[in-house]
Structures are given as structure tokens and as C-alpha cells.
Nucleic acid binder design. Structure first.
Ligand SMILES: [Mn+2]
Ligand SMILES: [Mn+2]
Ligand SMILES: [Mn+2]
Ligand SMILES: [Mn+2]
Lengths: 219, 219
DNA sequence: ATATTTTATTAGGGTAGTCTAACTTTTTTT
DNA sequence: AAAAAAAGTTAGACTACCCTAATAAAATAT
């Protein structure tokens, strides 16, 4: 039905929020090219194919929007990605910075059975190892009730429930800082000078940079 | 390193026994084309690439042999295929006729970790759901000590330990006949008229055609 | 309202993998 | 040994996906 390449284009558009509702709105060719690390000329050609397949809408020199069919397939691939990440993490004891690259390959395996059986085997998990929600079989994704640590007010107490950046580099840095999913913490101070955030967790006080705070999600 | 296509060529050559030792010897271009369901002209082009990569040896208008590098990689892919089949069967409760097609895709996933972790998770299985041996990490495969039911003598008692044909069509037929891996049976008669084989299992007498007998392995 | 910059598209080329049709070499048959 | 058949190779074409360089359109700045 769809090639791995096409699926990656759809996923990228979904990530960019190229949705009629509930997203940032239409995306541009260059923006998509940047997201995929592919040249705009190449993306332009692929968009022609995606239009013909009814997966995206785009007028000449216009912006790109996922159609309902495109959105549904993007979510299906994201569902597979996150289920595989959960499998690798829970069952094969991969670390949270190792799962992504392998899941990028596994998400393209085509099988009617496989995804649903895997989901059942994993006990119908609701989030992946990075705290990202796993869409259900019908493509429904629980609404986001998460804020970045940077935009939460002083005094706020909560748990780390997700990360915005899934790169191995960032995740390994978090491990080094002792920060992991589920950790309870309280924001004690937003430091005006450089935007650093002071927080307290398990009786220990620490300071994280603004960039780290912007990539951590709390409930 | 290698594309999925290249890996499929190597696996096909291994299946054909295109080995210097322990196989049927060199394979032909047409033979390989038939095995892969690809035209000889196409195979001819791919062989050029495999020669240049040092995976096969072939002189102009000559027969094809896997090099040691080629054999090793073929076995690695077979290892992955069989481990994934075992995973699908044991953990996701696929039937033995469903596992092959999905494993054909999964065998090409590239990850240093994945295969070894999967093997560990499965408890170091020695055979896949079709009774085929699973090579170890170093590419060692237990020697075959199996004979087809057709070539076993009258009076022989043993268990079904494998199948030669992995097609869903054949495996579903076996299910219908009530024949499965591990079943104990005794060969009571080779019928000269049409080569059918009469056998007895758990007190029940049955007759299978020659073609079925040729595709069942017993110990 | 132009000029400039940014964004999108087109033109032309490359690799991987597939095909059919024609041709050459080797093997088998007579 | 010649003829026929089989096996292997070459030529030319196609799809999918990628690139760079040039061009056209739209958006932004002056
Ligand atoms: Mn990921
Ligand atoms: Mn994830
Ligand atoms: Mn198989
Ligand atoms: Mn098998």
C-alpha cells in the first residue's frame, strides 16, 4: 500500500501539525524538507505522489495539509513506532535512548495481525518509554495534558511525564542528571538571569538550564 | 551495509546449497532467478554487484558460489528470520503458517543489539516453529539429523521434527490432517502403487500422499 | 510600488532494482 | 560434427527515491 518513504513523509507532516484541526495548520515544502533532512526539490516531487494518492492536499505554490486518510495513516505508523519502542524497552531491556532508531525501522513492518498482537502482549500500554501517548486501533490519541517545565509556574509540584526531544544525546544527559520519567519534583524558582529553573526532588535541590526545562514535560 | 534485496539473494543461494562444502555445489543464474521469482536478466545484474562486494564467486558464463563472507551473512539473516518466527509463534501466538511472511520483513531490521536480546528473551531456542535449526551468534548451525518420511524405512518410529515446505498452504493442510511438530508416529507401510505412506500415531492409522511424506521430516 | 528575499517548482542527472527482447555461449542431442 | 536446446548476458526501458542548479511565484522589506 504505502512505502516506508511515504510513511515517513506522513509522519513528518503530522509532527509539524499539518492538520485541518488540532494542529499548527498547513506546512510548507521547505519546512517539511528540513524536518526530513531531504532537499525541497525532492520533497516537491514526493508531494505530487502523495496528492495523487489522496494523502495530502496542496494547491500549486500552496501549503500542505494532511487529508483524513493521510492523518489516519500517520497515526497508525506512530502507533506502531511507540508500541515497538515499548516492546524494546519493557521486554528486551533497551534503554530509552536506544529504542528510537530501531523503532524507526520496525514501524514500517506490514502485517494486519502484528500490531494488535503486540499491543495485547504488552498489556495495552498507554504511553511509550518517552511518555508519548500510544494511539489506539481506531487512531484515537489521548489529548495532551502536559506542560513543559519551562512554562510551569513557581511552586508547581508534579511528575516528569514526557520529553520533547527524543535524541539519544538529550536522553543520556537526563540519565546523567538523574532525571527520569515519573520523577516527582517541585519548581522552586525561575531564575530571570538566564532562564534556568531551580527545582527540588526527593529533598535534593538542583538547577537545570532553560533548554533542558523546555524539553521536559510535567503533569 | 547490505540492502534487503542483497540479503534475499544471499539467502536464496544458501537455500540452493551454493556452498564450497556441505552443499549441493554451485548454482546457476536461472536456478537462482527461479528461486527468487525474478527474471534471469535481473539476477545477472545483481550478481555483478555481489561479486564486487565479495559475497559470491562466479566466472563469466559460470556457476555461482557463496564466498565465506556471503555464507556468513546469509546465515545471519536466517538466524534473524528464525528467531523472529519463534517470537511471533511463542509470544504473539501466531500460527505456524502465519509467521513466515512477517519474518521475511523482520529479518532485515538492522541493529547490533536486537538479535541477541531477542534470542535471550526467547530463552535461546534451538529450533523455529517449523523445526528448522536456529544458527548461533557465530553462525554455527547444528547438523541435520533428519530424514523425510518418504525415505524412512517401514517400521521406523519417530517424531515429526520438521517440514521441508514452509508455505501456508502446506502447513494448513498439515493442521487439517492433525499432523504437527513433535507428533510420534510409526511408518507401517510404503505403498508401491502410488508411493503413499501408511502410518500409525496414537493408535490411529492414516495414509498420506507421497508429496506430503516428502515434505515431512522425522528423527 | 519596487526591490529583495524567501518559498516553491522545474530541468536534468544518479543509483537501486525490476522488466522484456535480443543475442551469445555452453551443453545436450541427434 | 552439426543442430538444437538451455543457460547466461546485453541492451534498453521503467519506477522509486534522491541530488544540484536554474527558474518562477509569493511574501516581505524598503
Ligand atoms: Mn521514537
Ligand atoms: Mn517515543
Ligand atoms: Mn520462514
Ligand atoms: Mn521457519
Amino acid at each position: 500500500m504505502f512505502t516506508a518513504t511515504e510513511e515517513n513523509y506522513l509522519k513528518a507532516l503530522f509532527r509539524l501539525g499539518a492538520l485541518t484541526e488540532g494542529g499548527k495548520g498547513p506546512a510548507g515544502t521547505n519546512e517539511l524538507a528540513l524536518e526530513l533532512d531531504i532537499r525541497p526539490a525532492t520533497v516537491n516531487g514526493m508531494l505530487k505522489k502523495l496528492r495523487e494518492k489522496g494523502l495530502v492536499e496542496q494547491r500549486r505554490y500552496g501549503k500542505i495539509l494532511l487529508t483524513e486518510a493521510g492523518r489516519l495513516h500517520a497515526v497508525e505508523v506512530i502507533r506502531k513506532h511507540r508500541l515497538w519502542e515499548t516492546f524494546l524497552y519493557e521486554k528486551l531491556h533497551f534503554t530509552w535512548d536506544e529504542v528510537h532508531d530501531v523503532a524507526e525501522q520496525l514501524e514500517h513492518i506490514r502485517s494486519v495481525h502484528l500490531t494488535d498482537r503486540l499491543e495485547e502482549f504488552l498489556g495495552y500500554p498507554s504511553v511509550d518509554p518517552h511518555g508519548d501517548p500510544i494511539p489506539d486501533k481506531e487512531g484515537r490519541m489521548p489529548p495532551e495534558v502536559r506542560r513543559t517545565l519551562a512554562e510551569s509556574e513557581e511552586g508547581h509540584a508534579g511528575r516528569i511525564v514526557g520529553v520533547c526531544d527524543n535524541s539519544a544525546e538529550f536522553l543520556q544527559y537526563l540519565d546523567r542528571l538523574g532525571l527520569s520519567l515519573g520523577l516527582r519534583l517541585t519548581i522552586t524558582r525561575h531564575i530571570p538571569f538566564d532562564g534556568s529553573v531551580e527545582l527540588e526532588s526527593a529533598g535534593i535541590r538542583m538547577i537545570i538550564t532553560r533548554k533542558v526545562a523546555e524539553n521536559l514535560l510535567v503533569d
